[in-house]
Design a protein around this nucleic acid. Structure first.
Lengths: 237, 237
DNA sequence: GTCTATAAATAGATAGAC
DNA sequence: GTCTATCTATTTATAGAC
């Protein structure tokens, strides 16, 4: 990967040079439209109005270019998450704002977002490692840190795995994004075309839970809790 | 779709006939391995040891056969959900058990599960309608009904959209399934290869929320709540 | 080299006999 | 229910003209 920005600037995008930027935009288009195999480096070069050799100069290989496209697709959300940290907001507000932004970005950039999701879905164990390390690591790590911060400041329960909440947050927006075409046709669902409202409701659910609050006699809630947090060797009839 | 079971038996699988059953198994294999386009009806017939015309006799078209494969992949989970209803368990226990079963099924039948998820991801607005109506409708509807039951019996908050919780439940297992190859390589994640434990932790989070309980002074929690439930016209403050 | 025309192969689907 | 035979559309391969 020769195209890494060595200028010391923000790590947002792997390419500071305007030339590489154009290639990246073209590549995002092409990979989104046609997928990895059907996209040729020759076509990328042609659409960018440069030589194929130049493309290989900026991005060492087709695979590297592809990886950079995936990174680019996640950049906005990653930056939004980072910027929220010194905004004076509570952690709950930061996470809620991130979810709004994340889902909005997914929907706005539908095609390339699908590309990312498909890449994750089709990832082999080895490919997953690469994605984790070279694409999602920074964002996920920061999300986990924010959750930890929420625990330290007393907003969140401390008996909770921060990585779990981070995972759930990502899953909320991503799964909504990928299921909305189906969701729309379930009669009891009225939020399939209202992502904003969905995020608000989902946040509420995630923060406060779905059990009836203020009801210590809730047998189901209390009775179930053990079964729901141990590997349950102790079948609690 | 001529192969529907008209014998009055359970609607579980579209095919009661042993002949159709074999075809379906072969089709699951082939579609899972090679995808829709790369799978030919001739090959299905050959692998099933029958004529091509016979395949068309049982399943009216390639598309219908494919749809039946998707349905078949969801059958186990749908049945498990249904059977849990008259098991005497609380709704919380039913949902927890369903999540365990659902994720277990996804992981056990990895390839065909991927097929289903990919189908949802790649669905056009029209394809989404078909999937919703002909594949997922029964299961999702039942899940929503179970949640409603939980609300009526006082286990769950009543100021919550049951379809939202149903969606979240599905998203938990499905997104874990599809992200686990990536998840495994995030250092703060220690549940990527422990689906049982993951489900238990996720249930806990989903049921009880992530906010610190028993702390009415939690400004973040209270302060955020209005912004997080704007759907209600009756702003309870 | 590139293009078009055509042949060959393969796909999905149907008809009618057994 | 199962088969053989057949139809039609599409894809792929090849030949030959320009």
């Amino acid at each position: 990967m020769q195209a890494r920005d060595v200028s010391g600037g923000p790590v947002a995008c792997g390419c500071a040079n305007p030339g590489a930027q154009l290639i990246l935009e073209v590549a995002v288009e092409l990979f989104s439209e046609k997928g990895y195999n059907a996209t040729s480096m020759s076509e990328v070069a042609r659409r960018a109005g440069i030589s194929k050799a130049n493309v290989f100069h900026h991005f060492g290989s087709k695979h590297d270019l592809y990886l950079e496209v995936i990174r680019e697709a996640c950049r906005d959300s990653r930056e939004a998450l980072h910027q929220g940290r010194d905004s004076g907001q509570t952690v709950v507000q930061q996470l809620s704002a991130f979810l709004h932004h994340h889902l909005d970005t997914l929907l706005r950039r539908d095609r390339v977002s699908r590309l990312v999701v498909r890449e994750v879905l089709d990832s082999t164990p080895e490919g997953g490692k690469e994605l984790a390390e070279q694409v999602f690591f920074d964002g996920f790590t920061e999300l986990v840190e924010i959750v930890r911060e929420g625990q330290q400041q007393g907003e969140f329960r401390s008996d909770m795995d921060p990585a779990l909440l981070a995972h759930m947050i990502i899953s909320i927006s991503l799964f909504y994004f990928q299921s909305r075409n189906v969701l729309r046709h379930f009669p009891p669902v009225d939020f399939a075309d209202e992502p904003q409202r969905f995020v608000e409701m989902a946040c509420d659910l995630l923060f406060h839970g779905c059990l009836k609050a203020g009801d210590p006699d809730n047998k189901a809630a209390v009775g179930n809790r053990p079964a729901c947090r141990t590997m349950s060797k102790e079948t609690p009839e």
